[in-house]
């Protein structure tokens, strides 16, 4: 930690935020489980992925501190996120039209 750039400010969210995020994650998990029992037809997968995306963005931004990091980290994260989206989209060209 001695090598930190002195100009770089660290914002640490308080315990309250962490607990709120944790509760939100639990809530989304229970929504996922509940929705799994509902027949949404062709939208099942999209809803599941949407909830998963919200959950992971909470984890990445708050628990993994990306929200408070420098731009370069966000750019690289966005790059790998975009790759994942492209891979999903191309795979769905198979899955949806099968």
């Amino acid at each position: 930690m001695q090598h930190e750039n002195p100009k770089h400010k660290h914002h640490h969210p308080g315990y309250g935020t962490y607990i709120l995020v944790w509760l939100a994650l639990l809530a989304f998990t229970s929504i996922t489980v509940t929705i799994a029992g509902v027949n949404l037809g062709r939208y099942t997968l999209f809803v599941a992925l949407l909830i998963a995306a919200i959950k992971s963005s909470l984890v990445v931004n708050i628990f993994m501190h990306i929200k408070f990091e420098e731009k370069i980290f966000k750019v690289f994260l966005a790059l790998s996120g975009m790759t994942l989206v492209v891979i999903f989209a191309l795979t769905f060209f198979d899955f949806i039209y099968r």
């Binding site: 790759t83 492209v86 891979i87 191309l90 060209f93 198979d94 949806i96 039209y97 099968r98």
Partner: peptide
């Protein structure tokens, strides 16, 4: 090179749409 993987799977039973895209 990232976007062409399913050309290994043309005869696997994958959808026709995916086949021509890949």
């Amino acid at each position: 090179g990232y976007l062409v993987w399913a050309h290994h799977m043309f005869t696997s039973g994958m959808s026709d749409t995916a086949r021509w895209i890949f």
